[in-house]
Design a protein around this nucleic acid. Structure first.
Lengths: 198, 198
DNA sequence: GCCATAAGTGGCAGAGACTGACAGAACGGG
DNA sequence: CCCGTTCTGTCAGTCTCTGCCACTTATGGC
């Protein structure tokens, strides 16, 4: 996951570290006190930087939890493109998301806490949806390519959004459940509830 | 358009009228200048009320465009409950949304402008998604009631979210299209791209 | 018709998120 | 070691949103 930026430098490393630290502290505080009652000032004080710097790393308060949408979105898209073209689209999408869940750099415990916090505040869930829209714009062209018949664009959009909804539902259920089911199992189950028409 | 506030029940009438007027003016301004560059103060001045009052009618700036989520959500749920129980769930959901589109009080032209504005700003799209979450929480129990087999809750959640995605996609496409297709046609087409497994 | 009550409104003060500008500190390359 | 780049903190400011209080006005009981 660490795309150690080529420009050999202590600076880039330090920046990533500070960024990760802010995110970590923020999620911790949100989990304890609730998203709304934690101020940027508190986060900054806990980390040991100025409030201005927190805003430099994360444009919006919600981004401290969401992370970098574009990076993971590209990951999913690349997985999807790599799937064999004769594979049904729904299975290809499922496999792509599974690959994301299995990707390195996804700390299970911390990821679960982040998901739990993410579900606690409407503002966060809404911001998370923005990420989904970004992913949708990346995935829809790939899906449309594979479809046949009329209205490919609209159908592709529908299928992609539905798959993202499955992804979101599975992760939400996983974060709330008592660890009885794995995220992958929930994802497969959610995908199993729908089927694109041919 | 300007209702004289003469008869009995002046307060309730005036309240609804002011609320509608604020929403109308706000959407108009957002469409002209963009959501972010219009301030509450401008809206208040254009309507002829104080900024404080605008916030009294609409807790958040985005709500001037979104409207009242709970009211329409109940409308959809009531429609769904009223559908015959032997009807396939996917058809029942489609019929419920169709009834919403045909409901009185949905001005076609103004609705289209609102949808266009709604798609223009991330903050608005996010807020719209919160409406979807509210609707989902109302519809999921009804859908779960109709399902059979295992994992009813998760499957119901998946089906409801997918249907809401269809609803959103159809309206977005309708607002952007050159009026070639009606909203109902687009909705049916989007629903047609998916099918819940039995 | 008169008056007490409740509802609605406006103005004020303040918290909090976010932004731009600028000066100083830390770091990396030469 | 020096200089330019990068990062950071401070300051000032905008805007959304929320209590609070005083004032106006419609409503209902008499």
């Amino acid at each position: 996951m660490n795309d150690v930026t080529r420009p050999s430098g202590t600076r880039a490393i330090a920046r990533d570290a500070v960024r990760a630290r802010i995110s970590e502290v923020a999620v911790e505080l949100f989990d304890e006190q609730g998203f709304d009652s934690v101020t940027i000032e508190q986060i900054a004080a806990a980390v040991g930087v100025s409030p201005r710097s927190v805003h430099r790393y994360f444009p919006a308060k919600e981004d401290t939890v969401i992370g970098d949408p574009a990076g993971w979105g590209e990951h999913v898209r690349d997985q999807l493109v790599a799937r064999p073209s004769e594979e049904p689209i729904w299975e290809a999408l499922l496999a792509s998301y599974e690959a994301l869940l299995a990707a390195p750099g996804r700390n299970q415990a911390q990821g679960k806490k982040a998901m739990r916090v993410l579900g606690s505040a409407p503002a966060l869930r809404a911001r998370n949806f923005e990420k989904h829209l970004l992913w949708a714009s990346m995935l829809t062209p790939v899906v449309a390519e594979r479809l046949e018949g009329d209205h490919r664009e609209l159908r592709a959009e529908t299928i992609v959004q539905a798959s993202l909804a499955c992804f979101d539902i599975a992760l939400t259920a996983w974060a709330e459940a008592d660890a009885a089911d794995s995220a992958v199992d929930l994802l497969r189950r959610s995908f199993g509830a729908l089927q694109p028409t041919t």
